[in-house]
Design a protein around this nucleic acid. Structure first.
Lengths: 403, 403
DNA sequence: ATGAAAGCGCTAACAT
DNA sequence: ATGTTAGCGCTTTCAT
């Protein structure tokens, strides 16, 4: 109570002092600055206060943990009563109103927070779910993590995130780590080439859902875009504009999204009685670098190419950069379509036509599945959820014309 | 052992079957597809296997947790011996080589994973750190989270992430939640307007570091860019091109990054004997919407503006959109500089000059501080780390000329 | 060289 | 209406 008040008033003071404080700091630093080169990656450290005065003195050096036992003692009741009250079982146990108030009062006065660790151990449920992502800084995966975090928080779960750095062996370690932390469920965006460890997890009975890069023959829950249909949409668009020779900038071969996108394209071409030419496929990753290199290779190898289909946004960005270098006009000399949207695709040098994935929906779906699977005590289902994509036409596509 | 083998061989089979499987799936779905409108946000659910056969039968319906006790029993030793062996204290306790091998063997055979929950309770340390972020889908914050995750994982910590949705009250709840989960440290990117709860956390003795939006008068560890210096760089650039009337698209007023960026600009102008005109500042958030609206307002209100300084990338994107609508040529009629980089800034309709923040460094620094603070038993330091920015000139800036 | 037992903080029978 | 106690899985004294 007392502490709370102090904190608040300081919070206010902060706003009042904001500008002047900041200016003060700046003056002190002014001298130093000019001694460093402008773009050196250094950071300035300030230690404005001596350790011995003001606020700091009220601070304990170790986190102070108030236990239920202490609350009970302070309230003059047994731990069981305290526990029951604080878990809302007061009336179920006919605890007197007076006792209840007493306990509640003391608890909030002491700022009691039940140890979730102890709780987890006792209840045999951690209320945590694990999320394993190949690259948290990739906006696609970040958005998915976010949806999952928001959705499961609403159900009282916390999320442990782990970044596998696009590496299967790390993914394997991390899932193990999360299991030993007793997560109640696992959402993983697999790196996508070998998933045997995921199968092991699944067989152990831990609820698991795979997102984006899945394994169609693994009998577990999976959610991805309908890559195949998305590719179809892109292909139809290109074909309608008269394109017959389409270069493909692929991502990581062997992964489900890559193969499905390729498959959708191939089928569509065949349906239009065009032969499938493996020579037109190039690339080895979902990265900008890969897109850049394959564009250069494809364009020099095959001058008859009139359009490029990039299997990811970074692949498309690489293509943009490569065409810029070669002085090729998009879309006049070459059309480009991309899979995957980025927020500013429409503000690019040439606004990029794109097969958009419904990222929020993918995330929400994954969250819903894992929660449901945790709460239902039934054995995990095998369900593959394919989320519909949407094609957005932008000016990077035009009628086919020879380069 | 047995299970492991089965899993691996299945993983291989998957690769072989990949294409045909996928094609099979597709055929089955073909009929359904055409009954749905193309862009409906629906997802297709498949349940390819009946629950009663093949792999599924080997799967237990509840997660099967092997305990230390079971390992000990199977190995014919006491739990203490088992514990000591598995924690690498074998020789320290002169445990016989034979016993050690015995225990190790059984443990790996049973795929034993020590319960971190129990361990945490006993050791009074969770080996978890909490990360609170205003918006996990924002690439800036996502990148910071990633750096933190990678760095702390290396030290054996796991990270609990929480998304505060740019809302102080949620941030407050989440920090409480994380505290009760016994995290050993907290990294928070505060929403930035009221931080009293963070002060309370700090006073409780839990290590905490603030990132990006800090509070200069809170005596705790903080790391942000050197916003002030960054702004200075941008301003100097604009001034050198002859700009004298600069419109400012600001972010969330009252937050440290916003005020510092504003401050740096103001100082630079004053140093060049230009008066500070508050009328030239517009905007209420770090969003594209805010940037878009303030651009429209500023340009119609002040025809003498020759350059725009956007205090965030989204603000700048809003400006780009607004100028496109008004048919204003950038940079010929109007120059734009932005704070904050985005990966594809150079591929935008007009490549955007930018004050780049060293995001990875910010993240690494935060991680290093929290780890160090957890490991050192000394009371938390008050240190503000300012990470140097770098200005990147691109073609969105040109000599000043009247519109 | 190994074991027994206490106890981390909590919940839920099982007493009164 | 409230208290006592066992035990979740683990580590670590303290015995032997």
């Amino acid at each position: 109570m007392h502490r709370r008040t102090a904190a608040t008033s300081l919070g206010n003071r902060h706003l009042l002092d904001f500008m002047s404080q900041a200016k003060g700091n700046n003056h002190k630093k002014a001298g130093q600055r000019h001694t460093r080169p402008l773009d050196s990656a250094q950071s300035i450290v300030q230690n404005p206060y001596e350790p011995s005065k003001g606020l700091i003195s009220t601070m304990s050096s170790r986190p102070t943990t108030v236990t239920l036992k202490q609350v009970a003692a302070a309230a003059g009741v047994s731990v069981s009563v305290a526990s029951r009250v604080l878990n809302g079982h007061a009336k179920a146990y006919r605890i007197s109103d007076q006792t209840e108030q007493q306990v509640r009062g003391i608890a909030s006065e002491l700022d009691f927070r039940p140890s979730q660790i102890a709780r987890s151990l006792r209840l045999q449920k951690s209320k945590m779910i694990g999320v394993v992502i190949p690259d948290l800084s990739n906006p696609f995966f970040a958005a998915i993590s976010r949806e999952i975090a928001l959705a499961v928080e609403a159900e009282g779960f916390s999320v442990l995130v782990a970044d596998s750095r696009e590496t299967t062996s790390i993914e394997q370690e991390l899932t193990g780590e999360l299991q030993s932390r007793q997560v109640e469920g696992l959402v993983v965006c697999p790196v996508g080439v070998d998933g045997s460890h995921l199968l092991t997890v699944h067989q152990s009975g831990l609820p698991i859902v795979l997102v984006d890069r899945g394994f169609p023959d693994f009998p577990m829950m999976q959610v991805t875009s309908d890559h195949r249909r998305g590719s179809e949409q892109a292909a139809e668009l290109l074909l309608a504009q008269g394109h017959r020779t389409i270069g493909i900038l692929q991502g990581l071969p062997g992964t489900l999204p890559n193969e499905e996108r390729l498959g959708g394209l191939r089928e569509t071409l065949q349906r239009h009685d065009l032969k499938w030419d493996a020579d037109l496929v190039d690339g080895d990753n979902f990265t900008e670098q890969s897109g850049y290199e394959s564009t250069h290779r494809l364009l020099s190898k095959r001058p008859d190419i009139t359009a490029l289909f990039a299997l990811s946004t970074p692949n498309a960005m690489g293509a943009l950069r490569a065409t810029q270098e070669q002085g090729i006009q998009v879309p006049d000399e070459l059309s480009i379509v991309s899979f995957d949207d980025s927020p500013y695709s429409d503000l690019m040098a040439v606004p990029l036509a794109t097969v958009c994935q419904d990222v929020p929906r993918i995330g929400k779906q994954a969250a819903a599945l894992i929660i449901q699977s945790i709460q239902a005590k039934s054995p995990p289902k095998f369900e593959i959820h394919q989320v519909t994509t949407k094609i957005v036409k932008r000016s990077s596509i035009a009628k086919a014309s020879p380069r």
